[in-house]
């Protein structure tokens, strides 16, 4: 588990030399003791999922990256408060989701006058019809923030209602209801383009 590209974290501690021999819990405990490579390994293992969580909540890819970085920083600072008997991924995802929600709130305050024309979707599939892509972008912008986050977390990332509820700080039933309304709204808004 080399971290040549990563800068050294501001502490020195005994290092874990081979990631394959250790469980995630070992890495968490080692990171709590100040092992910089252990925390880098946790970042490597969880950054994709963290990005997916953040991406479901914020509007743009760039904001998702910001939320992920901010979330990992919060997690690093709160590491001593993490109880190693709970799943690290779920704990981290809640922190990432909170960072993303906080970013959305700050963006709303700052950009109150500037409504986004469309949702930025940076990774285009050339095979997808321009019309469907454009209409989907518009439709997602029309959805309430929470409904958009819930449908993306569930239908794209495969989180359960309970996991989504825990991350967004809402009851499981609310997540279920949001998913239902978001699907119905997208179906309604994309009905004509789908029939074509």
């Amino acid at each position: 588990m080399s971290v040549e590209s990563a800068p050294t974290l501001p502490f020195s501690a005994p290092m874990i030399d081979d990631g394959s021999r250790f469980s995630e819990r070992d890495f968490v405990v080692a990171a709590q003791r100040g092992d910089e490579r252990a925390f880098a390994e946790l970042v490597r293992r969880h950054q994709r999922r963290a990005y997916a969580v953040a991406r479901a909540i914020v509007l743009t890819h760039e904001d998702a990256e910001d939320a992920v970085q901010e979330g990992f920083l919060h997690a690093f600072r709160a590491l001593d408060r993490f109880r190693s008997d709970q799943p690290f991924g779920a704990w981290l995802n809640r922190i990432i989701a909170n960072a993303a929600l906080d970013l959305v709130r700050r963006r709303k305050v700052r950009d109150a006058d500037e409504l986004p024309d469309s949702l930025a979707l940076p990774f285009r599939d050339p095979g997808e019809s321009d019309e469907l892509r454009r209409r989907l972008r518009e439709a997602l912008t029309e959805l309430p923030d929470r409904q958009r986050a819930v449908i993306v977390m569930h239908d794209v990332e495969g989180f359960t209602h309970g996991e989504i509820g825990a991350m967004l700080g809402i009851p499981e039933g609310t997540a279920r209801s949001d998913l239902h309304h978001a699907r119905a709204a997208l179906r309604r808004m994309l009905k004509d383009v789908r029939s074509n």
């Binding site: 979707l121 989907l136 239908d155 239902h180 179906r187």
Partner: peptide
């Protein structure tokens, strides 16, 4: 229930991670 496979596919493509 209520999920449109085409919309779900489009969503997955739109939100695909790098």
């Amino acid at each position: 229930s209520g999920a449109d496979p085409a919309v779900t596919d489009a969503l997955r493509r739109a939100y695909a991670a790098p």
